[in-house]
Nucleic acid binder design. Structure first.
Lengths: 218, 218
DNA sequence: GAATTATTCAACAAACTAATTGAATGACCG
DNA sequence: CGGTCATTCAATTAGTTTGTTGAATAATTC
């Protein structure tokens, strides 16, 4: 590295960051950590990896500057190093969605089908919340909800949604959100709600993007 | 791929895009193609790779959706598939610069030293150009200048700058630009100009970003 | 249609990456 | 201070990526 020209060295560093994004498991881990700080074990469990394997992926992303870690008692907690990491992942997903033929097919075949119903933007939702016109539904797991959520949001993890439908208003519009743009929970929730006669829409992306945009969180 | 859940398949596709960015040579090639469409041979020559090697990197990036190619007579010409690719590379560089300790050192040691002089933003430059207050200097190679440049810009490749200093105005501010944020030409040009008593500054980034921002080009 | 030119393909060795296993480390708790 | 728990390290294996070489392909020109 030291023998390279400054520019070549810099580009080599940028390439390291890109490499750290270049694995599906690591993108899954990034989405998990975008919700909240987690221990190695939590990451491993949530992403269905062995502890040692998760630890290795986490170390690699920390070395690339995507994550930072801190010790809390026996545990090591990891989180995103910077909101700019979210922007990077968003840019990656935008290019991926736009340009990759295979991804386009997947998006077309699964996500788009569940989304003929236009998603609502953060701006729109903010306006409607101010007017008290919507019920906001957070369909992420409870622990992620606890770590931060939209103001006045109701938490109902997807698995429990069917049983709790009676608690939701039929007359008001419901806006569901989850982890991010490609999180399936919100798609599924909207589909289920509509099948049961609710007025439901999906927020265009998830909690991390809302928080990163500087909008109020609880 | 077909056996994966839709979300896992999508994340695997995003990972492919990231992998395609994960090599210093490919980032160099992307910077070259951000200036203008080029043939395989031109890319190979400019990036100092063998033809077969350059061809392989280009194919890989095309498969990932970063590039598109077309045939023109005997040659195959490659270009960026979409302006979103520029955003992605910019996001990557931002994270790289912010988070990677090694990169920070390089940036500190080389780029920052040459840039105590604040760079000028696109907005500022647009305003000053309107008032006719600046001379705009394009220090990229001639072929890249020919393919597109800022309005009223003067092209003086860095190698020829020393000989052509007499042709530049001492009383007006000179703003130099080149390929992008991490292109060394503009840094070097500003340093040389200042050593010779000119009022010189650097544009914050390069021609591709200017064009992508929808500003006028010639 | 044969020769020329530009690019890609195929095969290979070297280097690197991913996942697994089990051992080592380091902080906490009784 | 010894035991326990969470994480990391080290070693291994299998698989992937990189760059090189030379042959194959595809369009053009003579």
């Amino acid at each position: 590295m030291s023998s390279l020209s400054p520019k070549a060295a810099l580009f080599a560093e940028f390439a390291e960051v890109a490499k750290a994004l270049g694995h599906a498991h690591r993108l899954v881990i990034l989405e998990l950590l975008a919700q909240r700080e987690r221990s190695v074990e939590e990451v491993a469990t949530a992403s269905r990896l062995s502890i040692a394997n998760a630890s290795q992926h986490l170390r690699l992303m920390r070395q690339a500057g995507l994550l930072v870690s801190r010790r809390d008692g026996k545990q090591i907690l990891y989180r995103l190093s910077d909101p700019a990491v979210l922007d990077l992942v968003a840019a990656l997903q935008r290019v991926g969605e736009r340009n990759v033929a295979a991804a386009r097919e997947i998006v077309g075949g699964y996500f788009r089908a569940r989304d003929s119903l236009e998603p609502i933007t953060r701006e729109e939702l903010t306006a409607r919340m101010k007017d008290g016109l919507v019920t906001v539904l957070d369909v992420r797991p409870e622990d992620e909800f606890e770590a931060g959520h939209l103001p006045h949001a109701i938490n109902t993890p997807l698995r429990e949604l069917a049983e709790r439908l009676r608690n939701l208003p039929k007359d008001r519009e419901i806006v569901a959100y989850c982890r991010g743009h490609y999180c399936v929970f919100a798609f599924e929730a909207v589909a289920m709600l509509r099948e049961n006669g609710f007025k439901a829409r999906r927020l265009e992306d998830g909690f991390p993007e809302w928080k990163a945009a500087g909008l109020p969180v609880m």
